[in-house]
Design a protein around this nucleic acid. Structure first.
Lengths: 107, 107
DNA sequence: CCGGAGTATGTCACATTTGACATCGTTTGG
DNA sequence: CCAAACGATGTCAAATGTGACATACTCCGG
């Protein structure tokens, strides 16, 4: 859903470097990325605060250490769904999460 | 990633009805669902406030009317990613989103 | 130095999500 | 009554995300 959109726009006849496209997309995309980064930081922070290893959290999530590493790195292969589930699993409250999101201002 | 986890846990030797598993999972799952519902409500609310039709929003999202309908219905086939992207596309600020999430208390 | 614990990164088969389309229901204005 | 506009629901091929595994890097205590 990232390069997809680009592909779609290109098919619709918009050049890749087109200013409108570029700015338009990234304004939103950037916020989205900022948000993921903020949540990822939250996961790491809470996990460490709980004294858990990535492997331990992975077990709780029914996942693997490598994926937890990617989660905390906000890897492009990690969905918001997984980030949220991770936060909830560690015990973050909706309030905690809201706070993380509010802290996600665009660069 | 829902029945998947169950399958995984079973393979790991945990009974389906196991109390810990059961409570542990659903407490979290429930919150997750509540959150999706809250965000879905937010999408519909903002869209209507902007006087947009589902088709119009779909165009902005590079998606289709049917998917927007599913988004607002918090259909199981809709990811948090898509919900968030929708909110950002309509113009929701991180603050707006944080508010929606805080409003997502477990039933 | 070594070894182990914890974390990072690439890859892949398999699972889920997605846009698109078809189709249906409901409302509204003529 | 009809037609147009809007929204809901099911289906599917293609796109994307996922757990698992292998492997590498970094610390740290011995």
């Amino acid at each position: 859903m990232k390069r997809d959109r680009q592909a779609r726009l290109e098919r619709a006849g918009w050049a890749i470097g087109d200013a409108t496209t570029f700015l338009g997309l990234t304004a939103e995309e950037e916020r989205f990325v900022e948000m993921k980064l903020a949540l990822a930081r939250g996961v790491r922070q809470l996990r460490e605060r709980r004294g858990l290893t990535q492997a331990a959290l992975a077990r709780q999530l029914g996942s693997s250490q490598s994926r937890v590493a990617k989660i905390e790195a906000a890897d492009r292969s990690v969905s918001l769904d997984l980030l949220m589930r991770s936060l909830l699993t560690i015990g973050a409250t909706p309030k905690d999460i809201a706070k993380l999101i509010k802290g996600a201002e665009a660069a």
